[in-house]
């Protein structure tokens, strides 16, 4: 059939240098998932709307379903797998997502976290409105977004109400 040009690329993914052979048409999201078993970027649509595949490319937030793998040759990619502390402890943002029940099935979560982290790092003012606006490029079909917004505001240090029915509980876990 038609051309299936391939080429070798070298990309630093989540801090590790990775080399691979990709076809020209391979989307970054497919290379990350299929070749590197990176499970942060997910595919939820085919039109760039859902944001589940969001990663950082050289520090810039992008949707990896609209980038070719060959385009990132020599560059740096960060996925949601890079967000936790090195010892596996959840980051403050991740912990806020857990505390405020900001995820249900978890499929959109990695993308949401990437954007939330980008927003928090941007120095932009964090308000209900600004958070909702920042999440525009994402679709979540489980949570109704309310708790995601809360979690991000909490991560920014804002007072938000605790989840329903969540009086003292830490002491009871053990």
């Amino acid at each position: 059939m038609t051309t299936n040009d391939t080429r070798e690329i070298t990309v630093t993914v989540d801090g590790r240098r990775e080399t691979g052979v990709v076809s020209d048409r391979t989307l970054l999201v497919h290379w990350l998932r299929d070749a590197l078993d990176k499970r942060g970027p997910k595919i939820g649509c085919d039109t760039g709307n859902c944001g589940a595949c969001t990663v950082r490319w050289n520090g810039t937030l992008v949707k990896s379903c609209m980038v070719l793998a060959v385009q990132v040759d020599g560059d740096e990619i960060e996925t949601a797998a890079s967000l936790a502390e090195e010892d596996g402890t959840l980051s403050r943002l991740q912990q806020c997502f857990a505390d405020h029940h900001a995820l249900q099935c978890g499929y959109c979560t990695s993308g949401m976290l990437m954007t939330a982290a980008d927003l928090l790092a941007s120095g932009e003012e964090i308000t209900e409105h600004s958070v909702r606006r920042a999440l525009k490029g994402h679709v979540c079909r489980c949570t109704g977004y309310h708790n995601i917004v809360k979690a991000i505001r909490a991560a920014a240090g804002q007072e938000v109400p605790p989840p329903h029915g969540s009086e003292p509980r830490e002491a009871e876990v053990r």
Partner: peptide, 9 residues
């Protein structure tokens, strides 16, 4: 979700 065959320049 996949692209048709093409060349990248």
């Amino acid at each position: 979700m996949l692209l048709p065959p093409l060349r990248y320049l």
